[in-house]
Nucleic acid binder design. Sequence first.
DNA 1: GCCTATGATGAAAGCGCTTTCATTTATAGC
DNA 2: GCTATAAATGAAAGCGCTTTCATCATAGGC
Lengths: 332, 332
Amino acid sequence: MATIYEVSRLAGVSLATVSRVINNTAPVREATRVKVEAAMNELGYRPNSVAQSLASNRSNSIGILVSELSGPFYGELLSRIEAEFRAVGKHVIIAAGHSDAEMERESIEFLRSRNCDALILHVESVSDNYLRGLADGGCAFVLINRYVRAIAERCITLDNRHGGYLATRHMLQLGHREIAYVSGPMWKNDAKERYAGHLEALAEFGVSENKALFFEGDFQETGGVRALQHFLAADASFSALVCANDEMASGAITAAHDIPLELPDQLSVIGFDNVNFSHYTYPKLTTIDYPIAEIGQMAARWVLKNVYSQTTTELKAIFEPRVIERDSTQKI
Amino acid sequence: MATIYEVSRLAGVSLATVSRVINNTAPVREATRVKVEAAMNELGYRPNSVAQSLASNRSNSIGILVSELSGPFYGELLSRIEAEFRAVGKHVIIAAGHSDAEMERESIEFLRSRNCDALILHVESVSDNYLRGLADGGCAFVLINRYVRAIAERCITLDNRHGGYLATRHMLQLGHREIAYVSGPMWKNDAKERYAGHLEALAEFGVSENKALFFEGDFQETGGVRALQHFLAADASFSALVCANDEMASGAITAAHDIPLELPDQLSVIGFDNVNFSHYTYPKLTTIDYPIAEIGQMAARWVLKNVYSQTTTELKAIFEPRVIERDSTQKI
DNA sequence: GCCTATGATGAAAGCGCTTTCATTTATAGC
DNA sequence: GCTATAAATGAAAGCGCTTTCATCATAGGC
């Protein structure tokens, strides 16, 4: 691989000048630029990005930490973030935190040791305090899907509470009054918020909460299966099932088929997230849209603006969910 | 951030010695090692990976190019590859090629310009010739899910033909004789191979091919929908539907529900890939397992062995598919 | 034509590490 | 105790770039 030195020799100019034409960082006479470009072409020169990083103290790499690389949710996120950075010649290093505090911390350290210019973090288990400390320590990062007051300006979130509210309100507006709720793990913030929204909608319609119609699942498909079995075994009476995510909704639908229960005639089901398999269920799942790609895009733009000082469109910190009505819900 | 120089000063040794304890690259007296480690701890020293890369000509980064970052298929692949490299302190840079020759080429160049030590490529559009040239050019890469004879030692593939064979044989063994086939785009190699396997199974059972029962789809859900509509509109007679991937199978199932057609009573459907949503369909999809995670793992090990000279378990180049029987197929 | 302001360019000093080679120190053999 | 050998360490030269600072060329103002 040719180096900048060889290019400078061939073009008959100094290293500095070649660097200038590469980075367009200072005016260069047209004739000189042409000479340099010709030399670069002749040698098939490509700058060594590692050397550039060392000298400029910029790696042009952004670390992304998500809980899982697989699963329908994060793929879209990564996809959008990658596209956004790729367009400006920066690259993305990925790591998985697996919803475990220790692994999340270790992953963050790993990414930092890689000299990332910035991090985009989707962490669930690490403490608010840790994140605050990270920010104080001068680490450039933006937080996705989590709100930490002390570093509010770095948080990009979905209004989960409103989403929970919309889901249950949708059922209420269809006339349902006996509404079972399958929550995610209550230690997870989004699970708590969605549930709070659920209660809010119930209250608004004057429906009192029935503890027998609450089940804490695990955000996995099996959680939905167990939830439905639990409600049925307890002989609970309900015409609608609100699930805190699509995986559990899908599990519940599967379990319902096995009973069998006619959907949506005997039971209306709504999910949350609008992951891309949600229309593969039968009946197609009504759900709450989680604009994860947009959120990823916004996170990327946050980095572009705050770390790379690029002017960009207005940043948006809170995204609004909305109901996607398909076939799994119905008037009672 | 502390530098190696400060550590050496504090420990009262030379740069070289500190480097030796960091990399464990030459024997260091125990007492010295302890001093150095104490100094590193005191300063909270972490080596600058960019400087390491520049000096050692090793970036410890591996570029991964897949068609899409989203979608059920690639997530698992990335997940496994990341885990494998992470365990040995290396990181993964990702890029998407979007099944477009130009973008694939550009992505490869992008990754190379990032000084990746090796590339793991899942490319569909770029030519065999280009790949051969890449190999000749000294680029270290391994190819996933594609076989190019000239660089066979770099290819890790699934036996797609055998998979296609298994899918159709499964139907034949259930007693089906009128079997419709929904192919992927025939310019894609795996689509061609799977179809070849289909024909092989038909031949083995003495069933002659019926052109009216072939449809070329796009590997997308809509392709499956259109396929079923096409066959029905043509008034074709068939009791089984073999789809070249799960997306199309899912589309076909959706379309069948709309007719409505009782599944699997009136029609047996089989997919291919065993992506993670395939059991969300109703009835749960019988399919051919594509061990994508294992393939990813093998690709990572190929790199570990051939690029980083690590001793590792035996490498395997061809993986075998197998039938995953669920509820969408049934004896006739 | 001379002076100044400005635009172009080059020399050279890093960036933080690895690695070679020479030197020093410890170990063993007698 | 002395030499031959091995083990441990240090000095210094890069790795390929960016960036500061000084210098040189050019053009306009009078």
